[in-house]
Nucleic acid binder design. Structure first.
Lengths: 237, 237
DNA sequence: TCTGGTCATTTTGCATGCAAAATTCAAAAA
DNA sequence: TTTTTGAATTTTGCATGCAAAATGACCAGA
């Protein structure tokens, strides 16, 4: 197990002894806290795929009782980050290449929809913001600074989804991204198609500027297709 | 509250006394059972939007302890069927017209993607099956039998998503449908565009037969647009 | 050595206990 | 009459207890 028990003994003592926590009102519910922590640990790779998640150990680690831990595990299972084997506990779910490809396919579809809606609904402010991000991304691209390029690329995608003015879409997109961001696949994909993607972004910006939903959709639809192909190439090689 | 306590007293007694349950191995986990039950009660309208969900009462009603009930409520909250107000319990979430419209928009996007993928990947068996469903639906349409028409319509949509051969897509679609199926909106929408939708289905079938992904996508994209408009009409009137 | 079986230990799933927060309701004050 | 206060009650969130199931250690016999 790739866990990091930063002093289980102390943690246990904190929980077991009557040591006062901050007033409940001032805190978020514990299960939320635990959920966020576990999610981070999985996304960051502290808990590797296949690791067994023992609720007693986790509760010791996080200095809470088993109840909120178990609640968080069930939520993580619904999010698709862990699997719950009845009577056999929870494991970090290993995303197969197949599952990863499927998720990416869905995400691309979502982003295409977002692009179409955004073309209609985007505010001038948002468009300006995106222009700025895009310009900076071009600079980083020209400079060969991959890290910043990808960061800006990600910000643009988030902004695109926000600009669609659909809260359900935003939430869904975020949730799917969490699942995909784990492991090596994201990087694997991201580092392909470095130049091609730049052109596509250019076209997307043009469509958004013109508030041309159809064109934005077509551009992103191409993105769907290219991404699928890139994924396939990456996985076969 | 629109609950249906089919003898709370007896239920309580069952839970409280040492009365044996079926062996655990033979059962699904209780929280799953409870989750399914509560979900049904919400979708069926037994628990109306705005109803307060008191875990003690629910646990009495379902003859289980509060723990699995609370777990189920948290899962329902993540599914978007209830909201969890910290320290103030759970309520059945009232879907605003805005939220409902957003959900439908996302579902339409998902189904469009499904149509495109299905055009590529659908097996001959699935296509045949869909042809049969479609033929029956035409009959019911001609006969003016709305109820069966909608049932078949729904089956076709499910099959379409399945034919996309993407498990993530299938799961996502199912989850979104659950949220939308509640309340009066589904019917409200379904009963509009009765004839127009028939034509669109015709076109979709043609595209699928030809394995023409692009055409299938375009047809469903039109569906997105028309559905949005229909929703708008329905809500304004 | 390998197989199968028994028993001790650990882990899981659920029930329940308990303190803090929220709600209610009645009586007092404005 | 309306508002305020505050004590009693209910509800929530978490901790913990406990029985059933799973795991693993050990040993006997093939």
């Amino acid at each position: 197990m790739a866990q990091t028990p930063d002093s289980p003994t102390k943690a246990r003592k904190d929980a077991a002894s009557g040591m006062k926590r901050a007033p409940i009102l001032a805190r978020r519910p514990l299960h939320e806290e635990v959920l966020a922590q576990l999610r981070d640990m999985i996304v960051e790779g502290d808990l590797a795929a296949g690791d067994r998640l023992n609720d007693a150990k986790l509760s010791e680690m996080l200095a809470v009782s088993r109840t909120p831990v178990r609640e968080a595990l069930k939520l993580l299972a619904q999010e698709g980050l862990v699997e719950l084997l009845p009577r056999r506990g929870a494991r970090v779910l290993a995303l197969s290449e197949k599952a990863m490809g499927e998720l990416l396919e869905v995400i691309c579809g979502i982003e295409r929809l977002a692009a179409e809606l955004a073309a209609d609904r985007m505010s001038q402010d948002q468009l300006d913001h995106m222009e700025r991000l895009h310009a900076r991304m071009q600079q980083r691209f020209a400079a060969g600074d991959r890290k910043q390029y990808f960061k800006l690329n990600h910000e643009i995608h988030l902004l695109l989804v926000q600009a669609a003015c659909n809260d359900a879409l935003i939430a869904l997109h975020a949730s799917l991204l969490t699942r995909v961001r784990r492991g090596r696949y994201a990087a694997l994909l991201a580092h392909d198609r470095w130049a091609e993607a730049m052109t596509e972004h250019e076209e997307l910006m043009a469509a958004l500027r013109a508030h041309d939903a159809e064109r934005a959709g077509i551009v992103m639809a191409g993105h769907v297709k290219h991404t699928r192909e890139a994924l396939h190439r990456a996985l076969v090689s």
